[in-house]
Amino acid sequence: MENNSEITIQTLQSQIEKLEKKVTKLEKNRKDQLSMAIVSGDMDKILAAMIISLAAAAMDTKVKLFFSFWALSALRDPKKHPKGKDFISKMFGMMLPSGKDKLKLSNMNMAGMGPMMIKILMKKKNVLSLGEMFEQAGQLGIEITICEMSMDLMGFKKEEFIDYPHLRYAGAATFVADAGESAFQLFI
């Protein structure tokens, strides 16, 4: 009798050990984490990206945003004017929106009328502004990574981006590594 129960305990123990190993492996594979590659610099798409990020962060999901190409405009600080840019970089800087309040709509932009109307509607309907969303994102620990390659390509300098508490600079491999361990990935 005693012998029997000892054997049962032993089998249970080994089964538990196996399960524990499986669980750690699963946990490592799929973290409760959201990775987003944000390429678009359209106001509506940046809004969507930020709303999803905030909801995910509020639900205790770790959020990592990778900003690249046109999306970098959303991270520019209009008050900062870095020196030492070459001619083409200066031209690019002038042609691209100088920050999140100057982004265009992907549809119905109408030379700036569209974004103005959306902003009025957002205020009326109590939707957070992009500025408020970035502030909340900072408080919730949402990580923003700036793609260094596209930053260089478009002639942006580190000194012209917003002051954000969890800002870092990296390359595509960082996104790939982050995305690989995330439970879900989005491309915007």
Binding site: L54, A55, A58, L140
Partner: peptide, 13 residues
């Protein structure tokens, strides 16, 4: 009541 989605969730959190 003064905020739209995802405001209430953020407030709750």
């Amino acid at each position: 009541r003064g905020t739209a989605c995802p405001g209430p969730l953020l407030a709750a959190k």
